[in-house]
Simulated scan of single mutants.
Amino acid sequence: MKTALRHGWISHLPDFSAPYRASGKITHRAWFSPEEYKRLYTHTRERVRATQGTSWEHAVAQMHDYILFMANTGLRPDEANRLEYRDVTIEQEEQDGERILVIEVRGKRGVGYCKSTSGAVHPFERLVKRNTPKPTDLIFPQDHKKQFNRVLEHCELKFDREGNRRSAYSLRHTYICLRLLEGADIYQIAKNCRTSVEMIEKHYAVHLKNTLDAKAINVRRRTRAVVDA
């Protein structure tokens, strides 16, 4: 149509816009609720105990620590796949004395930094002890996609209640949602996850009941007491 307009074959461009703006449905990202997340890591922890002394022991233990590491850092799967041991350091926070991981993340948005929860420290220490790595070795050299899908099927967690399919990305979404449920500052979460506040508000915060202030919602106007004359 633009070519026709330039050649003078038509006098103007027709309006192809829709007469009414469609209201797009906001879809949430598939994540694990606290109860579902506990069911997931309890299952993989029991598998680690059940496979001790077998040829599957290493792979099962790696899967268990992968789940805990991802859900306590909020890394994207592609970021975790590029992560080397030298990119991770264990530090002690000055405020509460908890040990956390400080991670130098290389991903689609360049280089950024991530501070984990304390729950990521023990899985990382087990990874170091189990693999005795060099600093330049990848933390997760194997692709855990197939194994993770099998774990989800065994736990009956492959789909959420809306029918959304879960994947390794769901561990990142779980990290964000759990931080919001605990009352963390949304700007700090966005900064730590290398995303925007708008993305979190659109895909995460609107689906969490704990982000709603019941006191502000249920405010009542004070009425004057009726005094008899």
Rank of each mutant, 00 (worst) to 15 (best):
Met1Pro: 09
Ser11Leu: 15
Pro14Ser: 05
Pro19Lys: 14
Tyr20Gln: 15
Tyr20Arg: 13
Arg21Phe: 11
Lys25Gly: 11
Lys25Asn: 12
His28Pro: 10
Leu40Asn: 09
Tyr41Met: 07
Thr42Phe: 04
Glu46Gln: 11
Glu46Phe: 04
Arg47Met: 07
Thr54His: 03
Trp56Val: 03
Glu57Ser: 06
Glu57Arg: 04
His58Gly: 00
Ala59Pro: 00
Ala61Arg: 00
Met63Tyr: 02
His64Asp: 14
His64Glu: 10
Asp65Val: 02
Asp78Tyr: 09
Asn81His: 12
Asn81Trp: 08
Arg82Ser: 09
Leu83Val: 09
Glu84Thr: 12
Tyr85Cys: 03
Asp87Phe: 03
Val88Ala: 00
Val88His: 00
Ile90Met: 11
Glu91Cys: 00
Gln92Cys: 14
Gln92Phe: 04
Gln95Gly: 00
Ile100Gly: 09
Gly107Arg: 08
Lys108Arg: 11
Arg109Val: 12
Ser118Gly: 03
Ala120Cys: 03
Val121Leu: 01
Glu125Cys: 01
Arg126Asn: 06
Lys129Arg: 05
Arg130Gly: 02
Lys134Tyr: 05
Lys134Ser: 07
Asp137Ala: 03
Pro141Ser: 02
Pro141Glu: 06
Asp143Gln: 01
Phe148Thr: 05
Val151Lys: 04
Val151Met: 01
Leu152Val: 02
Arg161Thr: 14
Glu162Cys: 09
Gly163His: 04
Gly163Leu: 02
Arg166Cys: 04
Cys177Phe: 05
Leu178Phe: 15
Glu182Arg: 15
Glu182Ser: 14
Gly183Asp: 07
Asp185Ile: 07
Asp185Tyr: 08
Ile189Gln: 08
Asn192Ala: 03
Thr195Asp: 06
Thr195Ser: 12
Ser196Trp: 06
Met199Asn: 08
Tyr204Phe: 01
Ala205Cys: 02
Val206Thr: 12
His207Val: 05
Asn210Gln: 15
Asn210Ser: 14
Val219Tyr: 09
Asp228Cys: 12
Asp228Ile: 15
